[in-house]
Amino acid sequence: MRQLILPPGYNGEKFFPITGSEFHHLRNVLRVSTGMCFNGIDRKGNRYNVTVSSVNENSCTLHIKKNSVKELEVPQITIFQCLPKGRKMDQIVRQVVEAGAKRVVPLISERTIPRLQHNTVKKKTDRWRRIAEEAVKQCGASYVPEVFEPVKLRKIHEFRLEDEIGLFFHQLPIDNKTLHKYLSDCPPRIGIVIGPEGGLTDEEIRYLKDLLFVPVYLGPNILRTETVAVVAVATIQLLYLEYDSWRLR
């Protein structure tokens, strides 16, 4: 069952009309009819049971009831992704949102190949945001993730959250600590830096360490940047779901 994202104007009403492009999506893509039921979420992460109560030529009305199902406790993951070549960022955004990321911050690093023009930044960011929302509708996540405009890697400190542990994934074992060790206290927020195709420079690694980011080694196989992101998020989500079975005492 696909999930509906309630419009920004929704404020807890029991019945809510849908018009314009949102209605056209429901009518032409989802083929809604009276009595159809959906899972729904608002922009604050609240879940709802949604029933189509009526449909006419230019609008439909939704009957919305809040769902009190308790969410599993998982971390708030921010992906700091150095921009890859081509349209790989589209794939990364979709996959990390499906895997559980709640924030995506595209980064421009020294070895980033794409050089965005000022007049294309908003267009690309808007596309990534649409892709993120489509991923939420498909995967059933309980939130609409934030996708930011690209920033230089050295501005990453402006996007850190309180009580957030910082990780960066590296192709070499440059530290002997494990991911289990870093997550043994179950931090509520995790920031993950993923380098570009050419990897992070030594200077960038020193900068991240100064910000208390710690390195994580994923093994001997060299993964593509678009693979690392989804592997990182999915691995951390699984560790949290199985936390009681492995936590370090």
Rank of each mutant, 00 (worst) to 15 (best):
R47H: 03
T19R: 14
F168C: 02
G20H: 10
I79S: 03
L172N: 09
L167N: 07
K85N: 13
K155Y: 11
I77E: 09
M1W: 06
Y207C: 10
E98D: 01
L26V: 10
I131A: 00
V144M: 07
I77M: 01
C37S: 07
Q171K: 13
R2P: 13
V151Q: 06
E146L: 10
L212R: 08
P7M: 10
P187H: 11
K44T: 14
L62S: 01
H170V: 06
Y143S: 01
G199R: 08
K124A: 10
V69G: 03
K70D: 08
V121W: 00
C139Y: 08
I131P: 00
Q3S: 01
I174G: 05
D202Q: 13
R43M: 09
V214S: 12
K44W: 08
C139S: 07
E162M: 12
T178M: 07
I64N: 00
C139W: 10
G140D: 14
I108A: 05
L72G: 08
I174N: 04
K70G: 02
S142N: 11
K88A: 08
V136A: 00
T34G: 03
I194V: 14
V230M: 10
L212M: 10
Y217C: 04
E204I: 14
I41K: 00
G40I: 04
T61R: 06
V55A: 02
F80C: 05
G219W: 10
L183V: 05
I190E: 06
H170K: 04
Q117I: 09
E149G: 04
E197F: 02
P215L: 10
S21K: 11
I131F: 09
N11H: 02
G140M: 14
Q138W: 13
I192P: 02
D244I: 10
V69Q: 06
